[in-house]
Design a binder for these strands. Structure first.
Lengths: 343, 343
DNA sequence: GTGAAAGCGCTAACAA
DNA sequence: TTGTTAGCGCTTTCAC
């Protein structure tokens, strides 16, 4: 049927008995008033019969087209990253930029993912660690991560909120807590760890740690290991669990429930993120709101500003902006049932 | 600083004192053994000083590059669509295809979203309704929707699972149920409605309906309207609520809770999707598992088969495949406390 | 109203 | 080891 090659505007022109430039005119919609009715019909008809589709690459080589920015996130099923993407995409669209998404944990895969694509800038969220995103000299902004050498970064100012969180627990009477952490040790999680540690130390609170993957089942398993065995009937050596992520908190809920421990009466639990899950569970989760859309949008706007003819560079383009995180107190925290002041 | 135009390989060649093709050699990595050490350095150096980046459009015009398929979903924050995307992307990658994502509800926006991009095929999920995706003659497969004129479609075979679900409730003793539906009336939701109605009718069960947006707060509001006022202390005229989506079920949980109604003792609740939320809540949700990744992957494979030189077309390319949906019984369904057999 | 011709920036023979 | 040359398919003046 076909000889293997896609039909070009030349083929259409030949078939319609017109010149190639006429075909071009018709297909860009610039034909009205310049190309006769009959001719247009002939062209359209020939194109349909040939199955002609204008070659987008050739067109873009000629006219350019809007700049493209790559958004890289480690996991699009995670609602947090989905929100970051959504915010970033909206900001890009407002500025007339096109967006391409890459879902990869490491930068090499990102590079492979977009091989041969035109990429004018990169917005990378929560990358595994440091390193300039792509070795190519493309302007980049990283989100929720250490700013790599002179590139811009946007992150959350999470320490104050965590301090506030620990303080909230302290005021309720908690003196000994567990910190269920993400096992992936990116910059943001190291920061959370430090903030919790510092706040606990400052208030003379005990603190144990455990790590888990950000996954419901594994969080549940980690919490199981942290709490005393179900049949022992024993109380845990802490009265509250601070979790690095809402998902982890739900794992703690599950494990507590299995032991007949009641949240928040027997155990206070907190999360970080404030995704849908946080208000879906009972009791609703006390958590730290991390505005993902805003993170994405702010990062994208900075990136775009940097791309602009000028104006972006002067004021610290490599600087690091911090977005406020906000403590949201809900029902999962309460005074400990047995306020034995340890130590 | 710059004269406004991006530097080309010619500029680099001139600066390095070599020919343009040498620059090309160096930048495609084909230089080893063909270009001298010194020359390579000169080229790389000049390129860096000029800020040269190879023009991806020109390159692709020349060499082609892998085909691109557009994946369109209405909402990437919704974990279900995120899973569909993930499955589709994996299948595409396996076949060496590149993927571009568009998050839009209607097809015109999708078209605008990818304007000027090279798109060789389209995979559209849960589109608002019918109509061929993009008027351009691009091969397309739709997911979870009515197959538009001779295009392929992949959807769930949801009716049997819903029948089973209603039967499950009937066997528990429920005779009167509420159906909380999605207010968006796409093909899949019409289908769910019909399946529930048919199953109820067949078993002589009463059934009331209410509609809601797929959103936690609005679901809660819809459920509030469905249940008797909180202060009336009255029992609802139904003993179970069948929801079109897990999110809606959580709304019902919340509304029930606010009235002191206990799930499942006072009210059985079911969902559809089986997202994380379903096992996060207490009691865990009886729901119908819709394997999103598989939907995406299957659709993508069909699309790719169609794109192949041949082989795809012969066996019903326009046919509609159905993926099995599976009832998952968990703790949110139980015999009604007060099994007064109405009617 | 339509056609001829000159590129866009790059790759890939082929020559030297 | 390097340079020359001929396009990829399209847009876009500028003639006719």
């Amino acid at each position: 049927m076909s000889n293997g090659k896609a039909p070009t505007s030349h083929d259409v022109a030949r078939m319609a008995g017109v010149s190639q430039s006429t075909v071009s005119l018709v297909f860009r919609g610039a034909a009205s008033g310049r190309v006769g009715e009959r001719t247009q019909h002939a062209v359209v008809d020939a194109a349909r019969r040939l199955g002609f589709r204008p070659n987008a690459d050739a067109r873009r080589l000629r006219v350019g087209g809007p700049p493209m920015v790559l958004i890289a996130v480690p996991d699009i099923v995670n609602p947090f990253f989905a929100r970051v993407f959504t915010g970033a995409r909206a900001a890009a669209r407002d500025a007339g930029f096109q967006v391409v998404l890459s879902v990869q944990r490491d930068l090499d895969s990102v590079a492979a993912d977009v091989a041969g694509q035109r990429i004018d800038a990169v917005l990378a969220c929560s990358l595994q660690d440091g390193g300039p995103p792509l070795e190519a000299p493309v302007p980049a902004v990283v989100l929720d991560a250490e700013p790599p050498q002179g590139q811009g970064a946007v992150r959350f100012d999470i320490a104050p909120a965590l301090t506030e969180l620990v303080d909230h627990l302290h005021r309720l009477g908690h003196r000994s807590i567990a910190h269920l952490r993400s096992e992936v040790r990116t910059a943001t999680f190291r920061e959370r760890s430090e903030a919790v540690d510092a706040a606990c130390a400052q208030r003379g609170m005990d603190r144990v740690q455990a790590d888990s993957a950000l996954d419901l089942d594994r969080a549940r398993a980690a919490a199981d290991a942290l709490l005393p065995p179900a049949d022992s009937g024993g109380r845990p050596p802490f009265t509250a669990v601070v979790c690095d992520d809402d998902l982890l908190s739900v794992g703690v809920y599950k494990a507590a429930q299995a032991r007949g421990l009641c949240v928040p009466r027997d155990l206070s639990v907190t999360g970080i993120d404030d995704v849908d899950l946080a208000t879906a569970v009972t009791p609703e989760l006390t958590t730290v709101d991390l505005p993902g859309e805003e993170l994405g949008a702010t990062g994208m706007r900075r990136l775009i500003a940097r791309l602009a003819p000028d104006g972006g560079a002067p004021d610290g383009a490599g600087a690091c902006v911090r977005l406020p995180a906000r403590l949201v107190v809900r029902g999962s925290t309460a005074p400990p049932a047995d306020p034995e002041p340890r130590r």
